[in-house]
Design a protein around this nucleic acid. Sequence first.
RNA 1: GGCGUCGUACCCAAGUGGUCUAAGGGAUCGGUUUGCAAAACCGCCAUUCGCCGGUUCGAAUCCGGCCGACGCCUCCA
Length: 458
Amino acid sequence: MLQFYNSLTRKKEPFVPIEDGKVKLYTCGPTVYDTAHIGNFRTFLFEDFLKRVLLARGFDVLHVMNITDVDDKTIKKTVEEGKSLSEVTDFYTELFNKDLNTLKILPADHYPAATDHVDGMIEMIETLITKGHAYQTEDGSVFFKIESFGDYGALTNINMAEMQQSDRVDSDEYGLDNPQDFALWKSYKEEDGDVAWDSPWGKGRPGWHIECSVMSMAFLGDHFDIHCGGVDNKFPHHENEIAQSVCAVDTPFVNMWLHSEFLMVDGGKMSKSLGNFYCISDLINKGFTPEEIRYIMLSGHYRTKINFTLDKQHEAKASIQRIQSLKDRLLDITKIAADEYPDEKSNFDTALEDDLDAPNALAVFFDWVRTTNVALDKDELSEDAIAKGLNFIAYFDDIFGVLSDSVAIPQDIMDLVSERELARQNKDWAKSDELRHIIGSKGWIVKDTPDGSKLTSK
RNA sequence: GGCGUCGUACCCAAGUGGUCUAAGGGAUCGGUUUGCAAAACCGCCAUUCGCCGGUUCGAAUCCGGCCGACGCCUCCA
């Protein structure tokens, strides 16, 4: 039984799609004002993992990820750099796409940009005003009245009446009914530069939360299956999103909310001043492979904090290589494709079905790797079993995506290997070792097996 | 102040009432194998699960207290 931990109910629940065999999935995307960092990508990789598990189970997944291309931060950047909004957001959107690609994250079906949906947002805000859930302030902003939604706070277990009022918001300044009411529409201010849209309330721009309500509904309908994001988005973003959406259409909004925990770096929060702030390109420049990054992010459960440190690369590399070398061993024996799996696959699936328990799935998989290596050492595996094994590895990698495509071996390396083979046949060990060293310095490891020399890239 | 998560070996990380004298991965060391390596395999590696109490026939798992880490509380994944 496939089950997920639903943040809304705070317990694991069986996953039952609204429409049989289909999953409508919305994942909160990036705000494109700067390069996304590895913390952001922990969440995107968790979502990719969820999606791959759903796909492996045969679901037809319709996936939408928004691009927030207008908000305080994007506008600030625009003003700072003296550029147009789209110049800034296009640049970072492209960078984001590049990183998604690097990390082998399966593309979403739609990447709607907030600025393409302002009309829809205005429409929803009008509906909310008409229904008495929102009101306009003197300056031409529109706020959502949280009192008007009885379930407000359900996601984050917050009792608004008991909540201490934050002193960060000056309620007098905005003329709010309640300081916790949040903005649906923000009236134009000088510092917004030329970022503004016309609306029934005058010039302005949308608030942050409204875009996700509008865009998710535009592509997935009023009521859909799963909405994901990082834990920090539970409040206020997702809480507000639920309030707006439910009040606008009067139907349930999202069945399951899945949130991934934070990524820590060197035991604490990532910050530029501490120098532990990494982007994907930083790690690639430090010699990480995308697969190693995936392994580090996916080997911990998505609901626990993971602590990223640079030396985890070694662990990831060793683990991946263990799988890769078994795959190579099996491929040396047969290339036959099987459509069946070893028995261990069912335990592997059971682990994943239980709220995406990746650490347990890995334990099951590595158990199988070991027993398979033992059987291989004893020459006890049938060709059929080997084919099933290869199929299992392929299945595993469809979900984890941590094995790299084989790299073509350059001709000069091939020549060196042939030369070394010759030396070995002549038992010229000194020359053989020297050649291995040269090959090693060019980034390749030579292994001498009973079937001849084999190469692995470092 | 409010809400919440977490603390398991040298490191990462499962397990949430009995099959736990606690999976799996990595590191170290020793061994088998190898011309030497690499890979693979075997062995070693927590009688104990932050600390102190309690419940129970039985707890890493439930309850209480304490200590420690981290997060959210208006725009940070």
